[in-house]
Computed example of a mutant assay.
Amino acid sequence: MPLVSSKALLIHALKNHYAVGAFNANNMEVAQAIVMAAEAEKAPVIIQMSQGAIKYAGMNGIFSIVGSLAKRSSVPVVCHLDHGVDYDVVVGALRTGFTSLMFDGSPLSFEENIEITKQLVKMCHAVGIPLEAEIGKVPDSEKSHLSQEEMKKYYTTPKEAEEFFEKTKVDSLAVSVGSAHKMKIQSAVLDIDRIYEINEVVEAPLVLHGASGVKDEYVVKAIKAGITKVNFATELNKALTGSLRESLSKNPDLVDVRKYGDEARKNVVRTVREKIQLLGSSNRAEETLRFISENEYFHQHKSGNSIIE
Protein backbone atom coordinates (compact mmCIF):
# COMPACT_ATOMS: atom_id res chain seq x y z
CA MET A 1 0.00 0.00 0.00
CA PRO A 2 1.15 3.60 -0.38
CA LEU A 3 2.93 5.36 2.45
CA VAL A 4 0.44 6.79 4.93
CA SER A 5 0.42 9.90 7.07
CA SER A 6 1.27 9.61 10.75
CA LYS A 7 -1.79 11.69 11.62
CA ALA A 8 -4.32 8.88 11.47
CA LEU A 9 -2.02 6.39 13.20
CA LEU A 10 -1.45 8.67 16.17
CA ILE A 11 -5.07 9.75 16.47
CA HIS A 12 -6.17 6.10 16.49
CA ALA A 13 -3.51 5.22 19.06
CA LEU A 14 -4.52 8.15 21.26
CA LYS A 15 -8.17 7.12 21.15
CA ASN A 16 -7.36 3.50 21.94
CA HIS A 17 -4.62 3.97 24.57
CA TYR A 18 -1.59 2.42 22.92
CA ALA A 19 1.47 3.88 21.17
CA VAL A 20 2.95 3.59 17.69
CA GLY A 21 6.61 2.68 17.43
CA ALA A 22 8.83 5.08 15.48
CA PHE A 23 12.07 3.32 14.55
CA ASN A 24 15.13 4.99 13.06
CA ALA A 25 16.64 3.49 9.93
CA ASN A 26 20.09 4.35 8.59
CA ASN A 27 20.34 1.67 5.91
CA MET A 28 18.41 -0.91 3.87
CA GLU A 29 18.76 -3.79 6.33
CA VAL A 30 17.30 -1.84 9.25
CA ALA A 31 14.44 -0.48 7.13
CA GLN A 32 13.64 -4.00 5.96
CA ALA A 33 13.79 -5.33 9.52
CA ILE A 34 11.35 -2.69 10.76
CA VAL A 35 8.77 -3.60 8.13
CA MET A 36 9.32 -7.34 8.63
CA ALA A 37 8.75 -6.94 12.37
CA ALA A 38 5.64 -4.81 11.86
CA GLU A 39 4.18 -7.37 9.47
CA ALA A 40 4.93 -10.21 11.89
CA GLU A 41 3.19 -8.27 14.68
CA LYS A 42 0.44 -6.95 12.37
CA ALA A 43 1.20 -3.46 13.64
CA PRO A 44 1.26 0.03 12.14
CA VAL A 45 4.77 1.43 12.08
CA ILE A 46 6.74 4.63 11.56
CA ILE A 47 10.14 4.44 9.87
CA GLN A 48 12.06 7.59 10.55
CA MET A 49 15.30 9.14 9.33
CA SER A 50 17.27 11.84 11.09
CA GLN A 51 19.34 14.47 9.36
CA GLY A 52 22.36 12.29 10.12
CA ALA A 53 20.78 9.34 8.31
CA ILE A 54 19.95 11.56 5.34
CA LYS A 55 23.54 12.78 5.20
CA TYR A 56 24.76 9.18 5.35
CA ALA A 57 22.34 7.49 2.93
CA GLY A 58 20.98 10.40 0.87
CA MET A 59 17.42 11.67 1.15
CA ASN A 60 16.19 10.17 -2.12
CA GLY A 61 17.98 6.90 -1.51
CA ILE A 62 16.55 6.17 1.94
CA PHE A 63 13.10 7.49 0.94
CA SER A 64 13.04 5.18 -2.09
CA ILE A 65 13.85 2.18 0.10
CA VAL A 66 11.10 2.96 2.60
CA GLY A 67 8.55 3.78 -0.11
CA SER A 68 9.29 0.53 -1.94
CA LEU A 69 8.92 -1.51 1.26
CA ALA A 70 5.63 0.22 2.08
CA LYS A 71 4.12 -0.56 -1.33
CA ARG A 72 4.60 -4.27 -0.73
CA SER A 73 3.61 -4.20 2.91
CA SER A 74 0.36 -5.44 4.43
CA VAL A 75 0.59 -2.93 7.30
CA PRO A 76 0.47 0.88 7.29
CA VAL A 77 3.95 2.41 7.02
CA VAL A 78 4.88 6.06 7.58
CA CYS A 79 8.06 7.71 6.30
CA HIS A 80 8.97 10.33 8.92
CA LEU A 81 11.71 12.96 9.16
CA ASP A 82 13.14 12.78 12.68
CA HIS A 83 14.77 15.87 14.22
CA GLY A 84 14.72 18.14 11.22
CA VAL A 85 16.83 20.92 12.68
CA ASP A 86 17.46 22.82 9.46
CA TYR A 87 14.53 24.54 7.77
CA ASP A 88 15.80 23.56 4.31
CA VAL A 89 15.98 19.87 5.27
CA VAL A 90 12.36 19.90 6.47
CA VAL A 91 11.22 21.53 3.22
CA GLY A 92 13.38 19.11 1.22
CA ALA A 93 11.79 16.11 2.94
CA LEU A 94 8.36 17.54 2.19
CA ARG A 95 9.27 17.91 -1.50
CA THR A 96 10.72 14.40 -1.61
CA GLY A 97 7.50 12.81 -0.38
CA PHE A 98 7.96 12.09 3.33
CA THR A 99 4.52 11.55 4.83
CA SER A 100 5.34 12.94 8.26
CA LEU A 101 7.85 15.56 9.39
CA MET A 102 9.48 16.85 12.54
CA PHE A 103 10.94 20.28 13.01
CA ASP A 104 13.16 20.38 16.08
CA GLY A 105 13.40 23.99 17.18
CA SER A 106 14.34 23.12 20.75
CA PRO A 107 17.85 24.68 20.43
CA LEU A 108 16.17 28.01 19.58
CA SER A 109 14.52 30.50 21.89
CA PHE A 110 10.91 29.74 22.77
CA GLU A 111 9.70 32.60 20.53
CA GLU A 112 11.86 31.55 17.54
CA ASN A 113 10.71 27.95 17.90
CA ILE A 114 7.08 29.09 17.77
CA GLU A 115 7.56 31.35 14.73
CA ILE A 116 9.39 28.83 12.56
CA THR A 117 7.09 26.00 13.61
CA LYS A 118 4.06 28.11 12.63
CA GLN A 119 5.53 28.68 9.17
CA LEU A 120 6.21 24.99 8.66
CA VAL A 121 2.77 23.95 9.98
CA LYS A 122 1.14 26.22 7.40
CA MET A 123 3.29 24.81 4.61
CA CYS A 124 2.81 21.17 5.63
CA HIS A 125 -0.93 21.41 6.24
CA ALA A 126 -1.40 22.99 2.80
CA VAL A 127 -0.41 19.65 1.27
CA GLY A 128 -1.88 17.38 3.97
CA ILE A 129 1.29 16.47 5.84
CA PRO A 130 1.45 16.47 9.67
CA LEU A 131 4.24 18.20 11.58
CA GLU A 132 5.77 17.21 14.91
CA ALA A 133 7.65 19.78 17.01
CA GLU A 134 9.60 19.72 20.27
CA ILE A 135 9.28 21.89 23.35
CA GLY A 136 11.76 21.56 26.18
CA LYS A 137 14.94 19.70 25.26
CA VAL A 138 15.69 15.97 25.14
CA PRO A 139 19.47 16.00 25.82
CA ASP A 140 22.13 13.84 24.22
CA SER A 141 23.50 11.43 26.84
CA GLU A 142 26.86 11.07 25.05
CA LYS A 143 27.52 14.79 25.38
CA SER A 144 25.94 15.64 28.73
CA HIS A 145 26.13 12.69 31.19
CA LEU A 146 23.50 14.43 33.28
CA SER A 147 22.14 13.24 36.58
CA GLN A 148 18.38 12.90 37.00
CA GLU A 149 18.33 16.18 38.92
CA GLU A 150 20.38 18.01 36.30
CA MET A 151 18.08 16.79 33.54
CA LYS A 152 15.12 18.57 35.10
CA LYS A 153 16.32 21.91 33.72
CA TYR A 154 15.51 20.54 30.25
CA TYR A 155 12.00 19.39 31.14
CA THR A 156 8.93 20.61 29.28
CA THR A 157 6.56 22.61 31.47
CA PRO A 158 2.80 22.24 31.00
CA LYS A 159 2.48 26.03 30.69
CA GLU A 160 5.00 26.25 27.84
CA ALA A 161 3.50 23.20 26.13
CA GLU A 162 0.01 24.70 26.24
CA GLU A 163 1.16 28.06 24.85
CA PHE A 164 3.30 26.42 22.17
CA PHE A 165 0.46 24.20 20.97
CA GLU A 166 -2.11 26.99 20.97
CA LYS A 167 0.15 29.23 18.87
CA THR A 168 1.40 26.60 16.41
CA LYS A 169 -1.32 23.91 16.18
CA VAL A 170 1.26 21.20 15.57
CA ASP A 171 -0.04 17.69 14.95
CA SER A 172 2.12 16.07 17.63
CA LEU A 173 4.42 17.37 20.32
CA ALA A 174 7.68 15.87 21.57
CA VAL A 175 8.20 16.54 25.26
CA SER A 176 11.16 16.27 27.61
CA VAL A 177 10.22 14.27 30.69
CA GLY A 178 13.38 12.40 31.70
CA SER A 179 14.68 10.53 28.66
CA ALA A 180 17.88 11.22 26.72
CA HIS A 181 19.20 10.34 23.29
CA LYS A 182 21.84 7.65 22.68
CA MET A 183 21.50 5.93 26.06
CA LYS A 184 22.94 2.41 25.80
CA ILE A 185 21.42 1.16 29.08
CA GLN A 186 17.75 1.25 30.08
CA SER A 187 18.04 3.37 33.20
CA ALA A 188 15.99 6.54 32.60
CA VAL A 189 13.08 7.22 34.94
CA LEU A 190 10.30 9.39 33.53
CA ASP A 191 8.26 12.10 35.24
CA ILE A 192 4.88 10.46 34.68
CA ASP A 193 2.92 13.14 36.54
CA ARG A 194 4.36 15.74 34.17
CA ILE A 195 3.13 13.75 31.16
CA TYR A 196 -0.38 13.65 32.64
CA GLU A 197 -0.27 17.40 33.23
CA ILE A 198 0.90 18.17 29.69
CA ASN A 199 -1.66 15.80 28.22
CA GLU A 200 -4.40 17.74 30.01
CA VAL A 201 -3.54 21.02 28.27
CA VAL A 202 -2.30 19.88 24.83
CA GLU A 203 -4.87 18.59 22.36
CA ALA A 204 -2.39 16.61 20.27
CA PRO A 205 -0.58 13.27 20.58
CA LEU A 206 2.56 13.44 22.72
CA VAL A 207 5.89 11.96 21.62
CA LEU A 208 8.63 10.33 23.70
CA HIS A 209 12.13 10.61 22.26
CA GLY A 210 15.12 8.60 23.48
CA ALA A 211 13.03 5.61 24.55
CA SER A 212 15.91 3.16 24.09
CA GLY A 213 17.24 4.32 27.46
CA VAL A 214 13.91 4.21 29.31
CA LYS A 215 12.96 1.35 31.60
CA ASP A 216 10.13 -0.74 30.13
CA GLU A 217 7.85 -0.12 33.09
CA TYR A 218 8.12 3.62 32.54
CA VAL A 219 7.36 3.31 28.83
CA VAL A 220 4.11 1.54 29.75
CA LYS A 221 3.27 4.18 32.37
CA ALA A 222 4.04 6.95 29.89
CA ILE A 223 1.58 5.51 27.37
CA LYS A 224 -1.14 5.43 30.01
CA ALA A 225 -0.35 9.06 30.79
CA GLY A 226 -0.74 10.18 27.17
CA ILE A 227 2.39 9.33 25.15
CA THR A 228 1.30 8.12 21.70
CA LYS A 229 4.48 7.94 19.59
CA VAL A 230 7.62 6.33 21.00
CA ASN A 231 11.01 6.69 19.30
CA PHE A 232 13.69 4.00 19.26
CA ALA A 233 17.09 4.32 17.60
CA THR A 234 19.98 3.18 19.81
CA GLU A 235 18.39 -0.21 20.57
CA LEU A 236 18.26 -0.96 16.85
CA ASN A 237 21.86 0.16 16.35
CA LYS A 238 22.93 -2.07 19.23
CA ALA A 239 21.07 -5.04 17.75
CA LEU A 240 22.66 -4.55 14.34
CA THR A 241 26.25 -3.90 15.42
CA GLY A 242 26.14 -6.52 18.16
CA SER A 243 25.20 -9.17 15.64
CA LEU A 244 27.89 -8.00 13.21
CA ARG A 245 30.56 -8.18 15.91
CA GLU A 246 29.48 -11.69 16.88
CA SER A 247 29.41 -12.97 13.29
CA LEU A 248 32.81 -11.55 12.39
CA SER A 249 34.34 -12.64 15.69
CA LYS A 250 33.24 -16.23 15.10
CA ASN A 251 34.37 -16.17 11.48
CA PRO A 252 37.01 -13.46 10.91
CA ASP A 253 37.50 -14.61 7.29
CA LEU A 254 33.85 -13.95 6.41
CA VAL A 255 33.58 -11.37 3.63
CA ASP A 256 30.10 -12.00 2.17
CA VAL A 257 27.98 -9.09 3.43
CA ARG A 258 24.82 -11.07 2.74
CA LYS A 259 25.72 -13.69 5.33
CA TYR A 260 26.47 -11.43 8.27
CA GLY A 261 23.97 -8.83 7.06
CA ASP A 262 21.13 -11.36 7.14
CA GLU A 263 21.89 -12.37 10.72
CA ALA A 264 22.08 -8.73 11.78
CA ARG A 265 18.75 -7.99 10.12
CA LYS A 266 17.11 -10.89 11.96
CA ASN A 267 18.43 -9.52 15.25
CA VAL A 268 16.91 -6.11 14.50
CA VAL A 269 13.58 -7.79 13.67
CA ARG A 270 13.58 -9.42 17.11
CA THR A 271 14.30 -6.10 18.81
CA VAL A 272 11.59 -4.21 16.92
CA ARG A 273 9.02 -6.94 17.62
CA GLU A 274 9.77 -6.69 21.36
CA LYS A 275 9.25 -2.92 21.27
CA ILE A 276 6.00 -3.19 19.30
CA GLN A 277 4.68 -5.65 21.87
CA LEU A 278 5.72 -3.31 24.69
CA LEU A 279 3.80 -0.42 23.11
CA GLY A 280 0.60 -2.44 22.71
CA SER A 281 0.42 -1.90 18.94
CA SER A 282 0.49 -5.57 17.94
CA ASN A 283 -2.58 -6.67 15.93
CA ARG A 284 -3.65 -3.05 15.38
CA ALA A 285 -2.92 -2.85 11.64
CA GLU A 286 -6.35 -3.89 10.40
CA GLU A 287 -8.32 -1.53 12.62
CA THR A 288 -5.86 1.27 11.87
CA LEU A 289 -6.28 0.74 8.12
CA ARG A 290 -10.04 0.88 8.56
CA PHE A 291 -9.69 4.12 10.52
CA ILE A 292 -7.42 5.59 7.84
CA SER A 293 -9.89 4.66 5.11
CA GLU A 294 -12.89 6.04 6.96
CA ASN A 295 -11.13 9.32 7.68
CA GLU A 296 -9.41 9.66 4.31
CA TYR A 297 -5.93 10.03 5.80
CA PHE A 298 -4.17 8.23 2.93
CA HIS A 299 -1.53 10.47 1.45
CA GLN A 300 0.10 9.99 -1.92
CA HIS A 301 2.63 12.76 -2.42
CA LYS A 302 2.31 14.75 -5.63
CA SER A 303 5.53 16.43 -6.65
CA GLY A 304 5.37 19.86 -8.16
CA ASN A 305 2.78 21.28 -5.78
CA SER A 306 3.24 25.06 -5.86
CA ILE A 307 3.14 25.37 -2.08
CA ILE A 308 6.50 23.62 -1.73
CA GLU A 309 8.25 24.69 -4.93
Rank of each mutant, 00 (worst) to 15 (best):
L3K: 01
S5M: 04
S6G: 15
A8T: 03
A13F: 07
V20H: 00
E29D: 14
E29M: 12
M36V: 09
A38T: 09
E39W: 08
E41T: 11
K42N: 15
V45K: 02
V45Y: 00
M49G: 13
Q51A: 14
G58E: 09
M59P: 03
F63I: 04
I65P: 05
V66D: 00
R72E: 15
S74T: 15
C79Y: 09
D88S: 15
V91A: 08
V91R: 10
G97C: 05
F98G: 10
F103T: 11
G105E: 09
S106G: 08
S106E: 09
I114Y: 03
T117L: 02
T117C: 02
Q119W: 00
V121R: 07
V127E: 08
I129P: 00
D140V: 03
K143F: 11
H145Y: 13
E149T: 12
E150R: 05
K153G: 02
Y154P: 00
Y155D: 03
Y155P: 04
K159D: 13
A161N: 05
T168G: 04
D171C: 10
S176D: 03
M183A: 15
K184H: 11
Q186C: 07
V189Y: 07
I192M: 07
I195W: 01
I195R: 02
E197S: 14
I198R: 02
N199Q: 06
E200W: 04
G210A: 09
V219F: 00
V219L: 04
V219S: 05
K221D: 12
A222D: 03
I227F: 01
T228Y: 01
K229E: 11
A233H: 14
T234W: 05
L236N: 06
L244T: 11
L248S: 06
V257K: 11
Y260S: 08
D262H: 14
D262V: 12
E263S: 12
R270S: 13
T271A: 12
L279F: 15
R284L: 11
A285V: 05
A285T: 03
E286M: 12
E287L: 01
S293T: 14
N295F: 08
N295W: 09
E296D: 15
F298V: 11
Q300V: 15
S303Q: 12
I307R: 12
